[in-house]
Design a protein around this nucleic acid. Sequence first.
DNA 1: GCCAACGTTGGC
DNA 2: GCCAACGTTGGC
Length: 157
Amino acid sequence: MHYWLMKSEPDEFGIDDLVGARGQTTSWFGVRNYQARNYMREMQLRDRAFFYHSSCPEPGIAGIVEITKLAHPDVSQFDATGNYYDPKATREHPRWFNVDVKLVERTRFVPLAQLRVQPALAGMVILQRGNRLSITPVTAQEWKLIMRLMARRAGAA
DNA sequence: GCCAACGTTGGC
DNA sequence: GCCAACGTTGGC
C-alpha cells in the first residue's frame, strides 16, 4: 500500500465536485506529464491519496481518495475536439493513462501554509522549491502526520 | 499579474 | 545530443 498526493484545480474539479460525482468516483484524466503518468502506473488498488486543491486562493489538502481502478488509457487523448487531445497518441499506442479514484472522506481542510510549518514535512515532495508535479508520492510517515493534523481542531498549528 | 522553476520542442 | 526559445505550473 502506497500513499500519494494528487493535485486538482477546484475551478476545474474540486472536492465538492467529487462529493457530488456519481459513485463519488472520478477518472483522473488529463495528466500530460510523463513523471506524473508514471506514478499513476505504479498505483495499486486501495492505495490512498490526498486530494489537493492547487492554483486557487487557498491551496491545500481537502480530502482523501482511494484508487479504485488501475491505470488505463486516458480517452481524452483521442478526442480531437477536446483540450486534452494529443495528436501523437493512437489507440494502438496510447501515451497517456489515468487511474480512477473514489472519495474516502472529505477532511478538514489543511492549508499549504500549515504543511510548510511542520518540521517533519520538510522533505515532502510538494514542498520542495520549484516542484510542479501534479502527482507525487507521500511517505507513510508524512501521511500519518498529516492525518494527525486533520484530526486537530481548525486553526491549531 | 508576476515570476521562478521546470518540461518540451525543434533547429542545428 | 545540445541548447535556446517557448509554454505551463502554481504560489504569492
